[in-house]
Design a binder for these strands. Sequence first.
DNA 1: ACCTGAACACCGTTCAAGT
DNA 2: ACCTGAACACCGTTCAAGT
Lengths: 231, 231
Amino acid sequence: MIDPKPQGTQRSGALSREHIVSATIELLDSSGESAVTVRALTAHLSTGRGAIYHYVSGKEELLAAATDQIIRAVFETSADDPDARQSLRNLALGIFDALTEHPWVGIQLGREPRQPAVFRIWTGIGALLQRMGVTGHASSNAGAALMNYLLGAAAQYAATVHKVPSGGDRKAYLELFAAELTRLDSEVIDQEAAAALVEHDDREQFLAGVDIFLAGIEAGAASGRSETGEQ
Amino acid sequence: MIDPKPQGTQRSGALSREHIVSATIELLDSSGESAVTVRALTAHLSTGRGAIYHYVSGKEELLAAATDQIIRAVFETSADDPDARQSLRNLALGIFDALTEHPWVGIQLGREPRQPAVFRIWTGIGALLQRMGVTGHASSNAGAALMNYLLGAAAQYAATVHKVPSGGDRKAYLELFAAELTRLDSEVIDQEAAAALVEHDDREQFLAGVDIFLAGIEAGAASGRSETGEQ
DNA sequence: ACCTGAACACCGTTCAAGT
DNA sequence: ACCTGAACACCGTTCAAGT
């Protein structure tokens, strides 16, 4: 009763940055990235085409804001653990699961390194590595490596999720993919690896990659610098 | 004297897929990805707009073909080493160096997982991991992890290389970036890590990431499975 | 068969005009 | 101040028409 404006999911009420970003996420989720045009968006918001430019500098900022909203939610829900290593795994899985729900996030994360969502992940990883006792030069390298892995996996997964059928055709598709790999150089890909490709679980494989990283970081921290140049 | 056609770098002679891809690479290198429009390309080739569609299905295939040409060259020049581990490092560095010369490659690699250049890297990594004695399930996980790292690093680096000044301004830019990271959560990023960010060498950091991976793979192979679910 | 370039069906962004 | 929607300056792709 206090606020005379309707709470307006989309059509009515005043426009705001928040409304615009929410509508963008809806459109992204329901129809994919190619469907997010200024025309479609403003139609969805029942407003003029130029209106959104009062709240947002352009399409790039819009996509970055949508991505940050998803990543922020991951940080809010990701379970913290007394073991920093486990927290890092939780964070990585949280990002992975968010990607499954919003595949466009994976593509957007890789597009622009200086965007809020990427900053957020940087600092999150940095804090956890510090808690793990990794500091200084090693922390910088480890953080960058983990970041690169995460973003690479995100982009790959996001690009695949739309193209790999999820039902019973998934196996057939992956068998084709494995066959293509073996055909290219049949001596080189062993049959066991090809079979693993067909039967692997994406989420488990993603986590296996995180664990390889963590093992490498811990091995490096334990043994000191190996052959890479000092300083 | 045998062939009456001029050898035509661009304007004269018959059109061919090879010519078109070469012109695309030239345009990509000289003016960046945004400059590669069908209009600019066909002007460069002094032909009609529709002509290229006789040789190539569209812009996506064109960019994929350009990318594959660069990656193929990396494989041809990358030094093979009796030590498979060292060969893998050489390959990774070869890809990194190609990216420095052709930043658009990094972005293109992340865009589409089912493209020739990506297949090529998959099989290359697979072969070297096998030579390292990593096989079966572990090889599939290790290969995917390394692939994700490589593609993530490629995309990040490609996106940064245009935006970070390379001269004396580089330091100032990175200091700003470091400040932004610390500002976000000043307790959390240690000063040493921030300093490392400013002074790090991209190529060295990239290689450090590869080494973290290799250490993790070797640690995993030595200790067997850790806590990740069996099968 | 190969090539041309107008035409088509779109884009993101700007901006004078309205309220 | 906020919003509208025509106009602007582009895109990639198609296709009838030419050679």
